[in-house]
Design a protein around this nucleic acid. Structure first.
Lengths: 198, 198
DNA sequence: TCCATTTTATGACTTAAATCATGAAAAACT
DNA sequence: AGTTTTTCATGATTTAAGTCATAAAATGGA
């Protein structure tokens, strides 16, 4: 998103997180801008019964957690490192200064937020009113479009576990497993030693 | 959002829509910026079985449908007038010019998108993994916070039909009716001749 | 290399919400 | 005012996804 050199000019510091570390937690007050240098971060919630819902998964060069920063609300979800990750962090004040002094960044932020809102809109409609197979397939197609899934001979390798797909679509693992099997039978995707291709 | 006078400087024209009229449809290419002068607009999808999902409801002074405009994607949902409405419209090009020449507007847009993303995040987690009563109550509380629901002696009047609540939460009308009844029994809200107060 | 954990898998069963049916009350047209 | 449509309401039934149990394969640490 924003050039690391520019972030460093505004006091950016790089922090290391181990797999599973929380970067911030639901209910915290937003005080920083976060951008991934390397690694992978998920934003998630846990409901009353402890079931996880993954809001999104973020990769290299992506930022996360800005919306609450702009509207002065508490974080609606946790941010957790999925693998060991390096994250560059600047304070809210410096970030707003940076925006003010670099008007072309605003458009970048707008586009980024728009992209995420688009994803949420598509998935909201899916989650609320489509059958499991439809939901899984939509998530897969959207992820191919937006994430850096590798194209191999068999198709795009879907780099999610069944559990992650469940947590992203609000389905249980078993249901995801059954949906994927059924989608394979219909020829909508391939399973080659447990990995899913589309 | 944006001053009407400023929109008019950039060629804004006011269009009238009757209740039920489509302003744009899912799959259309985004070519304009829309802002409500008066009336009420919903954005919705229909799934394969014809069930409606309401992405959001927008009121006076609010804009809608910008995300796809910024990222050059087709509209992911329809926009429909819920009651007779006046909408001011400017072309995409003029809108981008306006943004370029009025940098303070960018921050407004960012805040607006952030607010909507925040709503989507909260509701996504709710819809995917909470029981109906929880979902209904969350929608109601969020709507009180964000929309202009009137405070009366009995509490805030929830200005939604049961059907609308269902379409916003992905539940069926009957389920919403039962959830609301149950919530009333628990004392979480009041029903006074069919109207819901919180 | 070995052991613990995670991931994928499948069958049996349970359950909560959807569906279906029906009707009264209220709202919106004509 | 009268008629149509929408909204709210409730009971009975169905069903799809969740839950539970169990296990093999793969992965990841120690």
């Amino acid at each position: 998103m924003i050039a690391v050199s520019l972030l460093e000019e505004y006091g950016g510091i790089i922090k290391n997180y181990k797999s599973g570390d929380f970067i911030f937690e639901e209910g915290n007050r937003p005080l920083h801008y976060y951008q991934i240098i390397s690694g992978e971060v998920k934003m998630n919630n846990y409901n009353d019964e402890g079931k996880e819902f993954i809001q999104g998964i973020f990769y290299k060069n992506q930022c996360f957690g800005e919306p609450p920063l702009f509207i002065d609300q508490m974080y609606p979800a946790n941010a957790v490192a999925v693998i060991d990750s390096e994250i560059i962090i600047i304070t809210k004040d410096k970030f707003l200064d940076l925006l003010k002094n670099n008007s072309e960044i605003s458009l970048k932020i707008i586009k980024n937020l728009s992209q995420r809102l688009y994803y949420k809109s598509v998935m909201a409609a899916e989650i609320s009113s489509q059958d499991p197979e439809h939901r899984v397939l939509r998530l897969i197609d959207y992820s191919i479009e937006q994430l850096n899934f590798k194209k191999e001979e068999a198709g795009f390798l879907i780099n999610f576990t069944r559990q992650q797909i469940g947590d992203l679509t609000g389905l249980r693992v078993e249901t995801v497993i059954r949906a994927i099997k059924s989608l394979e039978k219909k020829g909508d995707l391939k399973i080659i030693n447990r990995k899913v291709y589309r």
